[in-house]
Simulated scan of single mutants.
Amino acid sequence: MATSKRTLEERLQAGTVICAEGYLFEMERRGYLQAGSFVPEVALDNPDVLKQTYRDFMLAGSDVVLAFTYNAHREKMRIIGKEDLLEPLNRSAIRLAKEVAKEHPEEEALVAGNISNTNIFDPEDPASKEQVRQMFREMVQWSKEEGVDFVNAETFYYHEEAVIALEEILRQDLPAVVTLGVMGENKMRDGLSPEESCRLLSEKGALVVGMNCFRGPDTMQPFLERIRHHVDGYVAGLPVPYRTKDDHPTFFNLPDSGCSCHLPTETTFPTSLDPLYHNRYELAEWAKEAKAIGINYIGLCCGASPAMIRAVAEATGKEAVNSTYSPDMTKHFLFGKDDSLKGHNQDYRSKA
C-alpha cells in the first residue's frame, strides 16, 4: 500500500495531474443510477459498486478520486423527496473515495470533494444566490470534516455562481479547482467570456481554473488555448468524449444521422449518445495537444470510461497501474506479427 501523498499543488508543480470525472454517466451505464433525475444515490444504495468504479478510474491513471456528489445538493434531493439523505449521501461518497485512494500501490491518490451547478441560480434574484451559497456551504463543510484534499467545483455556466462556490471553498481553507461548462452561446450566461471568467477566478484564489463537460475536445480546445493565454496559474481541461463540432458545439444537441428508432427525448442527449463517441486514440491525441499548450490538469467528463482515461494518462507521459493491460496487438490472431503466430494468421488476415 502507498504510504505517502503529495498535495495537489505539489503534483501540479511536478507535472500533469490526471483527473477522471464522468461518474454520472458511468453509473447509469452500469445500471446503478436513474437517467433523468441523475442523483448519485449509489453512494448509499450500492456502495461497493461505487468503490469499484472509483478503483477502476484510479487504476486507469487518475491521480484524483473525485467523490461522487455531483447533483447531491439540497435542491436535487428535494426534487426526489429524499432531502433527509443529503448529508449521509455526501459523507458516504467521500468516505468511500478515501478508502479507495489508500489502495493505490504507488502513491495514495488525492480525494476531492465535489460541488457543481445547481440549476436554480438566478442572477436577478438575490434569494436564489443565498440559497445556492447555503447549499455549497453545507457540502463544503462536510467535505472539510471528512478530510478531503481539495474541492472540485465544476460545470458552472454562470460566472457569479462559480464565484460563490469558490468563496465557500476558500472559507473552509481548502484548495479549489473551479471549471466552467460553456453552453452553445460560447460565453458565460452572465456575459463574461470563459477566459475572463477563469482569469478572475484564478485571481480570487482558485488553485486551478478551466473547463469541463458539455463540449468535446474539438470545441473545447480553442477555449482552453485562450484561457491558458489569460491565466497565470494552473489550467484544467476535461471535455466529454463525444464528437462535438462547430455547428453542434455541445453534446446537448448532437444529431445521429444513423438513428432509425424513436428517441424518448428530442435529442441524443442524454441516453442515446453511444454512436457519437471519440475513440481512445483520438482522445489521446487531444491530451497530447492539451499538454503541449500548457494545460496542467487533464481528464475527461461525462461518458468517459477507464480505458479512455488510461489512454489520456499515457498520452501525457504517465504510466497507469493498469497500463499492464494496455492494448498490444503483437499476439492478436488477426493483426499479430509475433513469430509464434506464423502459419495461421496470414490466412485469417487475407479473408477477414
Score class of each variant (00 low, 15 high):
14 A>I: 07
16 T>F: 04
18 I>Y: 14
18 I>V: 14
18 I>E: 14
19 C>T: 09
24 L>S: 13
31 G>D: 08
37 S>G: 05
38 F>Q: 02
41 E>F: 13
42 V>K: 00
44 L>D: 03
47 P>R: 05
47 P>C: 10
49 V>P: 04
49 V>I: 15
51 K>E: 14
60 A>F: 05
60 A>D: 03
61 G>K: 10
65 V>M: 03
68 F>R: 08
69 T>F: 05
80 I>S: 04
82 K>L: 11
82 K>N: 07
87 E>P: 02
94 I>V: 15
100 V>N: 09
103 E>C: 04
105 P>Y: 12
108 E>M: 12
108 E>A: 14
120 I>G: 09
124 E>F: 14
126 P>K: 03
127 A>V: 08
130 E>L: 15
131 Q>K: 09
132 V>W: 04
136 F>V: 06
136 F>A: 06
140 V>Y: 08
143 S>G: 14
143 S>Q: 02
158 Y>R: 02
160 E>G: 02
160 E>L: 07
162 A>N: 04
164 I>T: 14
167 E>S: 02
169 I>G: 08
170 L>M: 10
172 Q>V: 01
172 Q>E: 15
173 D>K: 15
175 P>E: 07
176 A>S: 11
177 V>L: 08
180 L>F: 15
181 G>N: 05
184 G>K: 09
188 M>C: 13
197 S>I: 04
202 S>D: 13
202 S>E: 15
211 M>L: 13
212 N>M: 07
217 P>R: 03
220 M>F: 09
221 Q>Y: 12
222 P>M: 05
222 P>K: 09
224 L>I: 02
227 I>C: 06
228 R>H: 04
229 H>Q: 15
230 H>P: 00
231 V>H: 08
232 D>H: 09
232 D>E: 15
233 G>P: 04
234 Y>V: 01
243 R>Y: 02
244 T>C: 10
245 K>W: 14
246 D>R: 11
246 D>H: 01
249 P>Y: 01
249 P>W: 00
253 N>G: 01
254 L>D: 00
257 S>P: 10
259 C>E: 08
261 C>G: 01
268 T>Y: 00
273 L>S: 03
274 D>W: 10
279 N>K: 13
286 W>V: 04
290 A>V: 12
292 A>Q: 13
293 I>S: 04
296 N>S: 13
300 L>R: 04
306 P>Y: 10
310 R>S: 01
312 V>F: 08
313 A>P: 11
315 A>Q: 03
318 K>Q: 14
321 V>M: 06
322 N>L: 12
322 N>V: 13
323 S>I: 05
325 Y>A: 10
340 S>Y: 00
345 N>L: 00
350 S>G: 02
